[in-house]
């Protein structure tokens, strides 16, 4: 039964991927990609990785889908140029064969991975009580491999700043992205008003629950960001200008808190990013809270894009 389910899911994922590549128009391709993300989230559940499923659903399918769709709306034409740049059949065939061989080699490698699989599960579980959290993923992300997570949070700041720096000089200081008119009527605008409060609660819940169950700052932050984006495109919320100190501190609060707590480890524990067991959980929650805020802010800004100042 489960094998059948896996087979269906697996074939579906591959099928959707093929279709996404093959379809000529951009819009259905993005729809296909969102479907792909949804199916992948299901696969992750099947693999027992609910944390990842949440992340994939929120970021992989949701947020990525939205920015892709925004891009599709704004990119038009170029058909002739695209046709001219299309590689010839011989190149495509070569690419197909080569990619196939690479995939095959990969499959062989995966199938010949050693049995029993090496695993850190036991070690992760053994040290989890020292951290006071029950979700092993959170333990890995916040403690064992805390540096990865810190750098990853910094990558988000990089991305925001990099995106901003693509702006034309004269737009600097304006608000990020286009400015949307207020949607005054219709069911859409009703939903745009209704959804954010629910979403914010859900987002905070997902972030909060992360310490002990699947969830956490990235997933929760993404949901919060989604609600912010909804409010923004519905014209209900004006993004602060890029020069806004508050906005910027919101973006850097998470990594800064992370670093701050990490540096305190020099004083109160044995080194950077080391938590004293007595207050490990509160510290982790503190970082998670700040990170949720920062992730949400960063994602909104990344979706909005560089300052455009249209109708600002």
């Amino acid at each position: 039964m489960t094998l059948l389910l896996d087979l269906i899911l697996g074939l579906a994922v591959v099928g959707v991927a093929v279709w996404t590549l093959a379809v000529r128009e951009n819009f259905p391709a993005v729809i296909g990609f969102v479907a792909y993300g949804l199916l992948l989230a299901l696969v992750w559940v099947r693999l027992g990785a609910v944390d990842v499923a949440l992340t994939e659903a929120a970021l992989g399918a949701g947020a990525t889908g939205v920015i892709l769709l925004f891009a599709v709306v704004r990119l038009r034409g170029g058909r002739a140029e695209i046709d001219a740049a299309t590689p010839g059949p011989r190149q495509r065939l070569a690419a197909g064969i080569l990619c196939g061989v690479v995939g095959l080699a990969l499959a062989v490698a995966v199938l010949s991975l050693p049995d029993p699989a090496p695993s850190q599960a036991a070690a992760v579980a053994r040290h989890l009580p020292e951290l006071g959290v029950a979700n092993p993923i959170t333990g890995v992300l916040m403690a064992y491999r805390g540096l990865d997570t810190l750098l990853e949070a910094v990558v988000l700041v990089f991305a925001v700043l990099a995106i901003w720096s693509m702006a034309p000089d004269r737009r600097w200081g304006a608000v990020p992205g286009p400015v949307f008119p207020v949607q005054s009527n219709g069911p859409l605008s009703l939903l745009a008003r209704l959804l954010p409060p629910i979403g914010i609660v859900v987002g905070i819940y997902i972030a909060w629950v992360g310490a002990d169950a699947p969830g956490g700052k990235f997933q929760g932050g993404t949901i919060l960001a989604a609600m912010g984006i909804l409010a923004w495109v519905a014209g209900l919320w004006r993004l602060p200008p890029v020069a806004s100190r508050g906005l910027r501190w919101a973006v850097v609060a998470g990594p800064l808190a992370f670093i701050g707590v990490g540096l305190l480890g020099f004083v109160f524990a044995d080194g950077f990013l080391s938590y004293p067991p007595a207050i490990a959980k509160p510290l982790i929650l503190l970082i998670e809270a700040a990170m949720t805020l920062s992730v949400a802010a960063a994602l909104v800004l990344m979706v909005a894009g560089p300052p455009e100042g249209r109708r600002a």
Binding site: Q91, A94, A95, L98, A105
Partner: peptide, 17 residues
């Protein structure tokens, strides 16, 4: 050119392997 560089990348990976 992009496609040939991509192909070169793949060929190289296979060659090394």
């Amino acid at each position: 050119a992009w496609p040939s560089a991509g192909l070169a990348l793949l060929v190289l990976a296979l060659l090394l392997g």
